[in-house]
Amino acid sequence: MDAADWLTAVVIVVAAAAVIWLAILAATRATRLNRLNIRVDLARASVFAALDRRAVVARAIAASTADPAVAAVLAGAADAAEHAQPADREAAENHLATVLAQTDPADRPAALTAELADAQARVSIARRFYNDSVRDARTLGSRRMVRILHLGGHATLPEFLEISERVAPD
C-alpha cells in the first residue's frame, strides 16, 4: 500500500466518522425536541386546568355576590373564558382577570378570597412553566440543523401564552 492509498483510507475513515457524528447529533436533537414538545403539551394542559379552576372560583364568587349585575358580568366572563376557542382564550382570560380585579374582596367570604388567591398563584406558576417550556422548544426548533434537516417535522413552533397575572382594579 502506497501513500496515496493510505491518504484515501484516512479521508474515508474521517468522512465516515463525521457522518456518524452528525447522525448521532441529529438524532439527539430530534429526541430533545420531541421531549420539549411533550413538555409543552403537558404544561399547556396544566395552564388550562389552572385557568378552568380560576373560572370555577369566579363563578362561586358570582354566586356569593349580592349585586345581581356584578354576578351576571362575573359569571358571563367566567363562562366566556372557559368556553373560548384556543385563538380567543388569552383575550377571554384577560377579561376575566379584569372583571375579578374589579370585584371588592370585602364583599365576598374570606374562604373565596383565599381560594381565588390560590387559583391566581397556580395560574401564574403554570403560565411561567409553560412559557419556559415554549422558550426552550422555540430555541431548539430555530437552530440551523433542526431547520435544515426538518428534525421537528412540519410542526409549527409553539406560541407563548400572554395572560394577565394580576390586574389592578380601574
Rank of each mutant, 00 (worst) to 15 (best):
A92C: 04
V57T: 14
R53H: 14
I163A: 03
G152L: 04
T113C: 09
P169I: 01
N131D: 02
R44E: 06
G76K: 12
E165I: 02
D118G: 10
A15S: 12
E115Q: 15
D5M: 13
L149K: 07
A3W: 07
R138H: 06
L22H: 04
L151D: 01
D170S: 14
A111L: 13
R108S: 10
A78W: 00
E90S: 14
V56Q: 03
A87I: 05
A155G: 10
R53V: 02
P169N: 05
I163E: 01
A106N: 13
V57Y: 01
T28S: 05
V99M: 08
A78T: 03
L100N: 01
S133G: 14
A15I: 15
T113L: 07
V70G: 00
V73D: 13
F160E: 12
L112R: 08
N94K: 06
W6F: 14
N131I: 09
N37D: 09
A77K: 00
F48V: 15
N37K: 07
I163N: 02
T113M: 10
A77C: 09
A72H: 08
Y130N: 03
A91Q: 14
L42Y: 02
A137N: 05
A4R: 13
I20L: 15
I148Y: 03
S124Q: 11
L7A: 10
E90C: 09
D88Y: 06
A62I: 00
A77M: 03
D2R: 08
V167A: 05
V10Q: 07
R127I: 03
R138L: 05
R53D: 08
V146H: 09
T8M: 13
E162I: 10
R166M: 08
E82R: 15
F48H: 13
D132S: 11
R108E: 04
T8L: 14
L149S: 10
T113N: 11
T31E: 08
E162P: 01
M1G: 11
E162W: 07
T113P: 02
I12F: 11
S124V: 04
Y130I: 06
I12S: 05
S64I: 04
L161G: 07
L51Y: 00
